[in-house]
């Protein structure tokens, strides 16, 4: 009985100390972690948006579709609607979810995409994050483009030996564009004065 008490107490004390230590470190690193996440997001947003002079990170239009919130970061230049960026997700990748940041201009053209998170196969599917693949989306008309890979009779070049990854990216873009098209009016007014 006495021995058992000693065992319990030893573990309890060690866990207590560990808990206090972790709480302290967690508190100290919470701000840098949040800042790093914010910086990564801001970098992705500004990389896909046309020129702007507002703060798209805090000018956002949110709409909930089927329980999923869609956030559109609105870029404005001289008070005029310049474009919008949104984050979209596809779970049809080869290695888990693929998250894409998509930028659209006010003229209904794509401005660029960034891969935020992907765990595709290195050397094959991971090429979706490379310029060669991403640059083909620039200036594509969001209405006139057939949003599917060429293998599926669409107009996007898939990566050789990585059709699944390419298809997932295109699907993510397409599902986001659908929402964007439906709410273009509201999005373009977000952040305008008056």
């Amino acid at each position: 009985m006495k021995e058992m008490l000693r065992l319990i107490l030893t573990l309890l004390v060690i866990c207590l100390i560990a808990g206090v230590l972790l709480a302290f470190v967690n508190q100290r690193t919470a701000a840098p972690i949040a800042a790093a996440a914010r910086a990564a997001k801001t970098a992705a947003i500004s990389a896909v948006l046309p020129e702007y002079d507002n703060d798209p990170g805090s000018t956002a239009y949110t709409n909930e579709v089927n329980g999923t919130p869609w956030v559109f970061y609105v870029a404005r230049k001289n008070g005029q609607f310049a474009g919008a960026a949104f984050e979209s997700l596809s779970s049809e990748g080869y290695g888990g979810d693929i998250r894409v940041m998509v930028g659209v201009t006010s003229k209904g053209k794509m401005h660029g995409i960034q891969i935020l998170k992907a765990m595709e196969t290195p050397g094959l599917g991971a090429k979706i994050a490379e310029d060669d693949f991403r640059s083909q989306f620039v200036d594509k008309d969001i209405e006139a483009t057939n949003w599917a890979v060429k293998k599926d009779k669409g107009s996007i070049d898939q990566i050789t030996a990585a059709t699944i990854s390419s298809r997932a990216v295109v699907n993510a873009i397409q599902s986001g564009l659908e929402i964007y098209k439906q709410h273009r009016e509201e999005i373009s007014k977000t952040g305008s004065e008056g």
Partner: peptide, 25 residues
């Protein structure tokens, strides 16, 4: 008798600290 759980708690604590520090910095 409880040395293994004690070791694991100590190790896990330091791993979490590294995880948090790396995530932030």
């Amino acid at each position: 008798k409880v040395r293994i759980p004690c070791f694991i708690v100590v190790i896990a604590t330091f791993v979490t600290i590294v995880d948090l520090l790396m995530n932030g910095y």
